[in-house]
Design a protein around this nucleic acid. Sequence first.
DNA 1: GCTGCAGGTCGACGTTCATCGACGTATGAC
DNA 2: GTCATACGTCGATGAACGTCGACCTGCAGC
Lengths: 117, 117
Amino acid sequence: MNVDLQLEPKIKRAAGAPCCEPVVRPDVDREKAARLAEVAKALGDPIRLQLVDVLRKHAGKVCVCELVPLFDISQSTLSHHLKRLRAAGIVDSERQGLWAYYYVLPGALEDLRGWLG
Amino acid sequence: MNVDLQLEPKIKRAAGAPCCEPVVRPDVDREKAARLAEVAKALGDPIRLQLVDVLRKHAGKVCVCELVPLFDISQSTLSHHLKRLRAAGIVDSERQGLWAYYYVLPGALEDLRGWLG
DNA sequence: GCTGCAGGTCGACGTTCATCGACGTATGAC
DNA sequence: GTCATACGTCGATGAACGTCGACCTGCAGC
């Protein structure tokens, strides 16, 4: 197992030969990387990240009407962001009469957190 | 401190009044959210996420020529991804002669990891 | 000098995204 | 029934993104 990968610059070599033996390998497979990246991408917007932050800080479910005034965006745009978060499996919602309540799905951020160490 | 945010649907109310008192507040300010989102966004691509994964798994620095054959993309596209990761402050590079070596900046993912809990 | 290679940059292309206003759909109040 | 409200969806628009090939820049070897 090659721990220190600081490869010697074997500059004296035949033309066309690779600079070094390929020893690195991805540790996460393509499917897992895609899943992790999907969650990261959903969090890759300041508004969505703050949305998740607000929802996570509250044990219960939060009404959309509470979220709207927190941001300088229209309600339709906020709805779009919530839809994206739901598509990424980070939040879910529940309707009660006129209102919709959102909450963070338990364990939704677990994989990304685990990957980050 | 309102722990359970499951707001009662106070449906009996005067027209125009909000459904509930606004009690939620974002815990991360706008600037911190923007910084966290920038890192998350940089990780929001499967190739970039795998790149970081490979670099993190090796204590030393990894030559670009080792990274190219790991993915089904052109070298110019890979260079673009590495540039994005560098712009996000996640990796940095160092040239030695013909070759460029990339490495993950220590602590670059610390904030995001901390926010995730 | 010249040639070949590694890797970064540039321009172009098609796709996806964030945002908005407008509209649709339920629901509750009357 | 009618009307207002809360929220979602739709269509449009401009910006950002991922990808590529072509080109440019250094460096090593001749």
